[in-house]
Structures are given as C-alpha cells and as structure tokens.
Amino acid sequence: MRLQQGSFLWYLYLDKIYCLLSVRNVRALVEYFHMLDVHRRNSLNDVLFYHFLHHVTDLKKTQITVVFDMLDWSTLGEISFDQFYMLVCILLAQESHLEEQFMYRHSRPIFGLFDLNGDLKLGAKHFHMFRFLFNIQKQQLRELFHDFDISGDRHLNYNEFKLYTIFSVDKAQERQKAEKEKSLLKKKMSQQVDASQESLGKNGT
C-alpha cells in the first residue's frame, strides 16, 4: 500500500520512536476530519470513508471494507475521530517503514483492533485479513504462528502477540544495522579501490 504523493497525509510526520503525531499535526488532522465530516455528526459514514481512503491510498475496495469493519468496533456504521486518527497513524507507519516499531509501541490497541470477536485471542484467519496493513508476508505469518503460539491453541493471546512484536522490532533493528554495515563496507571498499587506482597511476608515471 502506498500513500498518494502530495496528499495532505503525505505531509504529516510520524515520530520515529513513539510512533505518534505531534500536537500540531493532530490539530491539522482534526481540521481535515471536520472538513470531511459533511453531516456534522463528528463521524464519517462508509461512503465518505471509502472515497477518502480510495483517494489517499491505492487500497482496493475489499480492503477498504475490511478496514472500515475493523475500525467500526462499536458497529455504528460510522468512523469517529479516534478511529480515524488510529488509521492515519497506521498508514503513516507503513509509509515510513515503521510497521514493526508501531506494532510494538501500540500493541494493546492493535491487538484490540485485530480481535474482531472480542475473545482476547487472535486467529490466523483474522491476522491474515489485516496483514496488508502492516506489510506482513504470508511466510512471516506462518512462522509467527509456528514460533509464538506457545499455548498451542492455534491462537495468539495478548502476551504471545506482545512477544511477537518485541521479536519483530529486534529483527527489524538487526536488519537495519546489517544494511548500514553493508553500505559502510561498500563505501570503504570503493574508497580503497580508488586509493589503489591512484597509487597505481602514480607508479605508472
């Protein structure tokens, strides 16, 4: 999923550590929400929500419906600002490649979102439905249930889910470190090659 470049959400900045928006950004977002709230009910209905998400992202219709059902936890058929804010943060986290960090920081509300039945357990089916929101691959999902389903009931409870988020953050940090080292190594190598070429040139003359 990608945010549309140049759209309003594209200009918001999600804090990299706490995965939250600044107060100034939230104020702008409130203003934006009020503009979208045509019927002055402090909420967006499904049609407005669909067109909003369709305009700012490249999500498909079925995916937007899934997101709407997920956010409309009180089954009012409308999305209030709290849920809207949550969605925007998820979109921005994905845009800035902070999915793991975001899940780790806000594990409780995300667990609540994924837990559609309210039985405090996450099934593989539900997880699979929402994996596009956090860029989780199929293989990763299989590994997740294989490694973290400690109780063996094919469901994740909150503690198991929390463990998964901690593990995925560690993994993401390691990946970042490895990438950094790789780029540093590349830089050093290129510098060394340049230096050796220069010395060869000098010897030749």
């Binding site: 759209s7 309003f8 200009y11 104020r27 702008a28 203003e31 934006y32 503009m35 979208l36 045509v38 049609v47 407005l48 669909y50 067109h51 909003f52 369709h54 305009h55 700012v56």
Partner: peptide, 27 residues
C-alpha cells in the same frame, strides 16, 4: 486564528473537495 498555514489549508480544501465530489456521485 486558525493556527494552520494557508497553503496547507488550501491543500486540505482542494483534497476534501475532490473526495466529496466523488462521494456526491456515489450518493
């Protein structure tokens, strides 16, 4: 009074207008 920069408000208004025009067609 608004506390928001004018270009940002303009951007928001334009975007909302586009979204709402599409929504109006659906309505």
């Amino acid at each position: 009074q608004n506390g928001l920069p004018l270009p940002l408000t303009e951007l928001m208004e334009n975007e909302v207008l586009e979204i709402l025009t599409k929504a109006l067609r659906s309505y």
